[in-house]
Each structure stands twice: as C-alpha cells, then as structure tokens.
Computed example of a mutant assay.
Amino acid sequence: MDLETHYATGPAEDSRLARTPHGRLEYLRTQELLRRFLPGPARILDAGGGTGVHAAWLAADGHAVHLVDVVPDHVAQAAALPGVTAETGDARALTAPDASFDAVLLLGPLYHLVDPADRARALAEAGRVLRPGGLLAAAGISRYLSLLETAAAGTLTAEREAPVRAVIETGAYDGHVGFVPTHWHTAAELRTEVAAAGFREVSVYGVEGPAWPALDAAGLEVFPERVENALRAARIAEQDPRLIDTSAHLLAVARRP
C-alpha cells in the first residue's frame, strides 16, 4: 500500500497523537525537545509534516513554518492553519532554495524511506536547504517498539515472536502491529546516518522514555495524573545508552556545518 492510500483509508492522521497515551506523550516530548533547540523566531521547513500537527504550535510560537508532504489531503489541511504555508512534495527532492531555512524537521520521512539511499537523499536535501549552522531535527521509530508494545499489552504471541525479533535485528518492519512497512532505527544507527550526511554536533534523544508502555496499559482515563511521572522518566533516560532505545521514537538533533 502506498502512503497516500494508507493515509486516505486509515485512521485520521491529524488525531494520531491524541488517540493513545503514548501518542500524547510523544507530542508533549517532541514539543519539549524542539523548543529546547529551536532558535526563535525561525524559518522552519517541516518536511513530511502531515496535516500540520506540529506546524500549528510552531506557528503559534512565532515561527514561520512551511510544510511539505506527499499526501495532497494533508497539505490542504496544513495550508489552512494560521501562519503555515504548505505544498505537495517529497523530502528527497525539495523545491526550496539553498540555505533558505533556519531549521528543517524530518519527523516522518526517515522511517517511511526504507531504502538507505533514499534516507541519505532526504538528509542531503535537508542539509542543502539549511543555512550554515542551521538545525536539523530528524525522527526515527525505535526497533524495540513492537517488543515493548506487545509485551505490555499481552499480545506477544508465538506467531509474533519471529517478526518482533526480525525488526530488532534488521530494522525492517513488516506491519505486524499495524502501520505500513517502514524502517526502524536504533539510536546508534540514526546517529550514524545523520553524521554520514555531513551534519555536526549530532545528538540523539529518546522521545517517550521507558514509561510509555505502562501509560498505554493504564489507559487514557488516568493519563492526566500519570503523564508528569512519564515525562520525568523520559528526561532522565533521554540519552542513557542503556535505555534510549526503549523510547517508541528517537529524535536526532544536529547542525549543518
């Protein structure tokens, strides 16, 4: 299934980060990490930005946000947001001029691009359109996501054991817990790919931290009373080499030389 078909027929993308406790935690921590590093006000390119879930709050923070996405319906929704411009496009072949943005977000493309050469092209394009010293924020999905999710939910069946092991070993995710086939990273792999694209000062952060499976198991109704504990755990473990891959998502932050 191609991306446009998946996003047209699957659950609404603009509510993805609100449907589950770990999605809400991902949203809060992504905000927290981006605000930590973004200059302000900045010219931001949100490549693969979907319906503008992050572009909306970034624009409200005073940034000038331009969103690019391969799904026309996403682009139409994003273009209606205050302070956001949007166009249909591909992170591997951006239309923006060289050195035209202060920051580039790749919060979806790197896991959708299963070929390493395509991920390298997307990172090279991000570097091209960034000004010297500009900020890259690139997300990956952790290879351990389905292991932790299924184990916590009690759905790690004998039939699922082989694909769970396979994605941990190879990064090739086959869709066994939903979603389309994608590439899942380790923190070390994500760091290596970003550095190989010529970026400097590369750091990788765990987004949700180790408590997200427990939040999901507890349910949305208790999320408000438990989220601060989960956020605290995420901050403690965000760069711990023994725990970083327990996050469902990883965020690489780097600079164009």
Rank of each mutant, 00 (worst) to 15 (best):
M1W: 04
M1P: 11
M1I: 02
L3Y: 10
L3K: 01
L3H: 10
E4M: 12
H6M: 10
T9P: 09
P11E: 01
E13N: 01
D14N: 14
S15M: 13
R19V: 10
H22Y: 15
H22Q: 13
R24V: 08
R24T: 00
L25W: 11
L25N: 07
L28I: 03
Q31M: 12
L34C: 10
L34F: 06
L34R: 12
R36C: 04
P39W: 07
R43T: 08
I44C: 06
I44E: 09
I44L: 13
L45K: 07
A59K: 03
D61E: 07
H63V: 11
H63T: 12
H63S: 11
H66Q: 09
H66I: 02
L67G: 05
V70L: 14
V71K: 08
V71P: 10
V71I: 05
V71Y: 06
H74C: 10
A76F: 09
A78K: 15
A79C: 11
A79D: 13
A79E: 05
L81V: 03
P82M: 05
G83F: 06
V84L: 02
A86D: 04
G89D: 13
G89T: 04
R92E: 03
A93R: 10
T95K: 13
P97E: 02
D98V: 02
A99H: 12
S100I: 01
S100P: 10
S100F: 07
D102I: 01
A103K: 15
L105A: 00
L106M: 07
L106C: 04
H112Y: 15
A117G: 14
R119C: 02
R119P: 07
A126D: 00
A126I: 02
V129Y: 03
G133Y: 13
L135H: 13
L136Q: 02
A138C: 06
A139N: 04
S142F: 03
R143D: 10
R143M: 07
L148V: 07
A151Q: 14
A153N: 04
G154N: 13
G154E: 13
T155F: 06
L156S: 09
T157F: 09
T157L: 11
E159R: 15
E159Q: 15
E161N: 08
R165P: 02
A166Y: 08
V167Q: 13
T170G: 09
G171N: 12
A172R: 15
H176E: 00
V177C: 10
F179H: 14
V180E: 14
T182M: 14
H185E: 05
T186N: 05
E189V: 10
R191L: 08
V194A: 01
V194N: 01
V194Y: 00
E201G: 08
S203W: 07
S203F: 09
S203P: 05
V204Y: 05
Y205K: 09
G206S: 04
E208N: 01
G209R: 03
P210N: 09
A211I: 07
P213M: 04
D216V: 02
A217Y: 10
A218F: 08
G219S: 09
L220F: 07
E221T: 13
P224W: 10
V227H: 08
E228L: 02
N229P: 06
N229D: 15
N229T: 15
L231T: 01
L231V: 00
R232I: 06
I236Q: 07
D240S: 11
D240C: 01
D240E: 14
R242H: 13
R242W: 12
D245S: 00
D245R: 01
D245I: 03
T246K: 08
T246S: 09
V253E: 06
V253I: 13
R256V: 04
P257M: 04
